[in-house]
Design a protein around this nucleic acid. Structure first.
Lengths: 352, 352
DNA sequence: AGTGAGAATGCTCTAACTGAGCATATTAAA
DNA sequence: TTTAATATGCTCAGTTAGAGCATTCTCACT
C-alpha cells in the first residue's frame, strides 16, 4: 500500500533556477501590492458559514469572494488594523477574534477576468464571530463553507462526490505521466492523492483541507485552475468543477481557514467565539460537530468540557429542547488566564 | 491569584480609528516592500543554533540579523522560491525543510539606524537543517538562539535572569498606570506578565516565546524598543537590555521560529530534519531537549519514539558512548505516507 | 584477567484518561 | 396517563503516560 519511492526529504517546493546576484549589493526591496482577505466564520443553525461578497457594480454572475481590501500602510499602522477597517466597512461587521492564516504570493493565482494581473501578495485571515453578534451584513451574505468544499462535508458520512467523481479523476490523474516541466516531487501523485483524500483505506484527516484543495487545483479539477490557465485543467473534457468558484485565490484562503479552525478548535478554546453567551452543552457539541464532523459521544463530550473547566453553569435551564430541560452554561473566560487553555479535545474523523 | 477584570473577549489588537472610504470605489492596492527573512536552525553539539549575518560593509558593531532579501516578483514565482534564492546566496546554504511563520507589518518595527524607514512587510520563515549537511556558511555564523533569548534557556533549571532581573522589572511595569494612548487590553498587565512568564506559580509554557518577547518589547525591556523610540523604553534608566539585539524585527521573527519549532516538534516528525541520517536514540533525545528543555524520561522517550514507528534500527551500533554501545537508528520516512505522522509526543516544561 | 563506572536497554507497576454503554431524570406531546 | 425524546449521571474496560527497578554491555583502570 505504501510506496517509498523517491522518499528522501519532506516535500519541498519546486526548485527554480535563480539569477545570480552579487551578494555585496544592498538588496533593493521590490514593491508589490498587498491584499488582505478575511474568512469570517459563524455557525448558524448548526451550519458553518462564511461571509462572501460580490464586487460592487459587477453582475450577479461574477464569482463571489471573501471581503478584502488593500493594505494601505499610511492609513493603518498594522496589517490586522487594515483588515478590520476594510471588513468593517465592506461587511458592516465589527470583528472580534481575528488570526492571521498565511501569506500567499504565487504568481498567476490572483487573476480575475479582466484584470491585468498585477502581482499581489495576499494575506489571509480567519475571523470567528458569534451568531448573536451578527447584525445583518450590509453587503454580502452567509454561505455554508461546504458550498465551496462539498467533499469536506462528512456530516452524513462520506460525501458521495468523493467515490462518484473525485476518486476516479484523481486516479486517472495519478496515472498520467508527470510533465517534464513540473516540479520533481519526492512523493508520487498516487501517494499524495491517497494521503490527502483517504484513498485505499487511508484515514481521512479532516485538517488537510488546504492540501486537498491544492491537489485538486494541481490536477486541474477546480475551476480556478482553468481560469488561471493551468495546463492540467485544459486536459479534462468536460471540465470537472468541484465546489463553487471564488474570486482571486479566495478559495485557497478559505481552505486554509477551515483547516486552521478544525485544528485549533482541538487545542484552544476558540469554539466559544462562535457561541452565544449562554448555551447548552449539546448546542456546544453541535457546533463542534458542524466544524469537525459529527458523531461525538455525548456523555464523554460533556465530561471533557466540564472536566477541563471550560464552562460553568449559569443556573438557568433551557426548556423546549424536546425532552428534559438542558442546563445553560457559559464560557469560563478565566481559563484563558490559567495554564495553557485547552480546546475541546475530541478524537476527530471517526465517521465512516 | 486570578483576576478576571475586564475579561470580555480574547485579546484583540488595538482598535484604531479608520478613515471612512466609499465602499463602492474599487480598492486601489497600495504598494509596499516585502522582506523575506529566514530563521535557519540547526542543532550543533546539543545547542540550538541560528544562522545570523552581518550586513556587508558594515562594521562589526552593527547588529546581526537573519539572512534576508526582498521579494522580487518578476524573478521568483513564489515567496518561498525567492527566499531560497536569497538565502542560498547570502548564506551559501541549500535549504531543505522550510515553512512560513508569520507576516509582520507593524509600522515602525523595521527600522535600522540610518534607514529612512520605508514601509516594509516582513515575512518570516523557519528552516531546519541537519548538521551533517552544513557546509561552512560563506557569510554569517551560527549562534545559540539562547544568545538572543536567555530567559528561554531552561536546560539548567529556571534561568537566573528571570528572578534576578526580568521579574522585578515586569512587576514594576505592571503596576504603572497604563498610558491613555495605549490600547485598551482586555487582560491586565499583571495577568499578561504572569501568564507569559510564569509568575506566581503559573506554569511556564515553553511555546510562548513570541508572547514573551512582545511583552518585553511593549514594556521597553529589549533594545529594539528603545531603537524604535517606544515610550516605555525611555522610562528605564539604565535601560535594561535583555538578550542580544537583532536588526530590523528579526528578533521577533526568531522568537516566532523558536515557538513554532517547539510546538511543531511535538506533533510532526520535524526533529529528524535536524538529525544526521543515523543517530542513537539518546542523541535524538538530546536534540529534542535542546529545543524543548531537558529532563525527558529516557526509557519512556525510547518507548514513545520506537512505538510510534518513527525510527528503525540500521543494524549498526555506535561505540565509545562511554558505556554500552548504542544501537543506531534512522528516520522511517515512510511514516510521512502513513496516517497523520506524529511528532515526539513529550510532556513539555516539567523542569522546575 | 578482573572490576567497577557509565551508559543502553528491557520490563513492571500504577494512575489517569478515553471510548463505550447502561441507567435514571425530566420534559412535551399523544 | 403513557410514550417518546432528550439530558444527565455513572460504570467498566482498554490504553497510555509517568516513574522506577533491573539487566546488559563497554571501557578504563587495577
Amino acid at each position: 500500500m505504501i510506496s517509498d519511492a523517491n522518499l528522501k526529504r519532506l516535500p519541498r517546493e519546486n526548485v527554480e533556477t535563480y539569477p545570480v546576484r552579487t551578494p555585496s549589493q544592498r538588496p533593493e526591496l521590490a514593491t508589490v501590492e498587498i491584499g488582505l482577505n478575511a474568512a469570517i466564520v459563524a455557525v448558524i443553525d448548526n451550519e458553518p458559514m462564511v461571509l462572501v461578497v460580490r464586487e460592487t457594480g459587477n453582475d450577479a454572475s461574477s464569482p463571489e469572494g471573501l471581503p478584502f481590501g488593500p493594505f494601505a500602510p499610511r492609513e493603518h499602522r498594522t496589517l490586522e488594523g487594515g483588515l478590520r477597517a476594510w471588513v468593517g466597512e465592506q461587511a458592516g461587521l465589527d470583528l472580534g477574534y481575528v488570526e492571521q492564516l498565511y501569506t500567499f504570493g504565487d504568481r498567476g493565482r490572483h487573476t480575475d477576468p479582466g484584470d491585468a494581473a498585477p502581482h499581489v501578495v495576499s494575506i489571509g485571515y480567519l475571523a470567528l464571530t458569534e451568531t448573536s453578534q451578527i447584525e445583518d451584513p450590509q453587503r454580502g451574505q452567509w454561505r455554508s463553507w461546504y458550498h465551496y468544499f462539498p467533499w469536506e462535508d462528512w456530516r452524513k458520512g462520506r460525501p458521495e462526490i468523493l467515490e462518484a467523481e473525485i476518486y476516479p479523476k484523481l486516479r486517472e490523474w495519478a496515472e498520467r505521466p508527470v510533465p517534464k516541466g513540473a516540479p520533481q516531487r519526492p512523493v508520487s501523485r498516487e501517494d499524495r492523492a491517497r494521503i490527502c483524500f483517504g484513498l485505499d483505506g487511508t484515514a481521512w484527516d479532516e485538517e488537510k483541507v488546504l492540501e486537498r484543495y491544492e491537489l485538486l487545483y494541481e490536477a486541474g479539477l477546480v475551476e480556478e485552475a482553468r481560469r488561471d490557465g493551468r495546463e492540467a485543467a485544459l486536459s479534462w473534457s468536460p471540465a470537472p468543477k468541484f465546489g463553487a468558484l471564488m474570486r482571486y485565490d479566495h478559495r485557497r484562503v478559505l481552505a486554509t481557514a477551515i483547516g486552521r479552525t478544525r485544528a485549533k478548535i482541538k487545542y484552544r478554546p476558540v469554539v466559544f467565539e462562535l457561541m452565544p453567551p449562554d448555551f447548552t452543552l449539546f448546542e456546544l457539541q453541535r457546533t463542534v460537530e458542524a466544524i469537525l464532523g459529527p458523531h461525538l459521544h455525548k456523555q464523554n463530550f460533556r465530561r471533557l468540557v466540564e472536566g477541563a473547566g471550560l464552562v460553568e453553569p449559569t443556573g438557568d435551564v433551557k426548556t423546549r429542547t424536546g425532552g428534559r430541560p438542558a442546563k445553560l452554561y457559559r464560557f469560563r473566560r478565566e481559563v484563558l488566564l490559567e495554564r495553557p487553555a485547552p480546546g475541546v479535545r475530541v478524537k476527530p474523523g471517526r465517521v465512516v
